[in-house]
Computed example of a mutant assay.
Amino acid sequence: GRVICAQDRQHRQVAIKLMKIDSKEYRILRVLSKEPLLFSAESFGCVIPPIDFLEMGEHCFVVMPRWGDSATWPWFSTVREALDYMRSLLKGLCFLHERLIAHRDIKLSNILMNHIGRFEQIHKNPFRKQLRHEGRALYALLDFDCAVMFPRTSTPAERRLPGRESFIFGGNYSYDTAQGELDYDPFAYDVAALGQLFCENFQQLAPITHFLAPFIDRMMTRDIAKRYTAAQALLVFDDFCSRLSPWQLDTAPPPIDDRCDPENHETWARLPEDFVQQWSSHREPKLPLSTKVLRWICMQPLGYRVVQWARRICAVFTARPSLKAYGRSV
């Protein structure tokens, strides 16, 4: 709708997006345009950078490099290639969070690859396979329609958003607000959403790379205090990957299991018993009945409002600080 493709004077493929100058997305892109890491081939931050701004009154045409979508197609030839993809997304999320930018809409369609191909031909496209094999494939996050950026002077308590704002149509999601929570941490939400994307697309790799089971569970855990931050997840991921053998990295990864339920997957059941016992502290427990009931109520007509009303009453009596006004995002 608001994005068109073109070619600039240097014959580079670009995408041009129209947006309002007073929008949060515009302000975020202005900040990203000043980040040297997004223009570095050696230390690319895995976020699509804006390269020009054409302002016209209250609107602006933002020019960005044109990359290709459907970044997981064709499917990866080796586990190493799949892990490179996962690491790029962790790196991109870490880059944003370090600058207090919460993406809030992590999904496959918002992940691009540095190769453009016709949609109907991507499954058989040999150039993507060649880029991956040569280690030249790059992946990056984009689309800041729903993103929020907080001031450097803000406190963690001020970096929370109303629970109702977590529901974004067509986006990936976390279950952090599925029980009618009044507010939520958008940064922790991002990590859980990316963990869910990993679970849905890569949990079948766990029998080859065992660490993915505890790693993904810790990204998605319902105990948010124990959940990795983006920076922690990247460090742990790199540490785990450094311990993999060449045969593990060069093994062909199984295809996506379309039946995967992020909260009821059987990843651990396919792992050695000694490994399961060693990492049992990272294993996410089954969903409690009380949580299932709360979610069921919230999915009913008016159910979500009723649960939030009850939570507000409880919050008044407990004097929760999170009931203070929101709006510190910029």
Rank of each mutant, 00 (worst) to 15 (best):
H59N: 13
R104H: 00
V79E: 14
H103I: 07
R104G: 01
E81M: 10
A82N: 05
Y85N: 05
D84P: 01
R66G: 02
L100R: 15
R104V: 00
R104K: 03
V63H: 02
V62I: 10
F53V: 08
F76E: 15
T78M: 07
R87F: 12
G92S: 02
W67E: 11
R66H: 08
T72K: 13
L96V: 05
R87W: 06
W75K: 08
V63I: 13
F95P: 05
S70E: 11
W75R: 12
M56W: 09
H103G: 07
G92T: 01
S77V: 11
S88E: 09
A102Q: 07
R104N: 02
S70F: 10
G92M: 02
M86T: 00
L93E: 05
H59V: 07
M86C: 06
V62G: 09
P65W: 02
G68D: 11
D84H: 07
L96R: 10
R66A: 04
R104Y: 00
T72S: 10
W67T: 04
C60W: 01
P65N: 01
L83F: 10
S77H: 13
R99E: 02
R87C: 06
K91F: 01
Y85E: 04
T72M: 15
D69Q: 09
C94F: 00
L93C: 02
R66Y: 04
G57D: 10
Y85A: 01
G68N: 08
L100W: 13
S77W: 03
G92K: 01
S88T: 04
F76P: 08
P65Y: 00
T78S: 12
G68R: 09
G68M: 12
L54D: 00
E55P: 06
R66L: 14
R80G: 07
K91P: 03
R99F: 01
D69H: 09
C60I: 01
C94Y: 03
T78R: 14
P74F: 14
C60M: 00
V63E: 00
W73T: 13
V62W: 15
A82V: 05
E55G: 03
L93I: 02
I101C: 01
A71G: 08
R99K: 10
G57L: 05
L54C: 04
E98L: 07
A102Y: 06
E55V: 09
L89P: 10
V79F: 07
T72R: 14
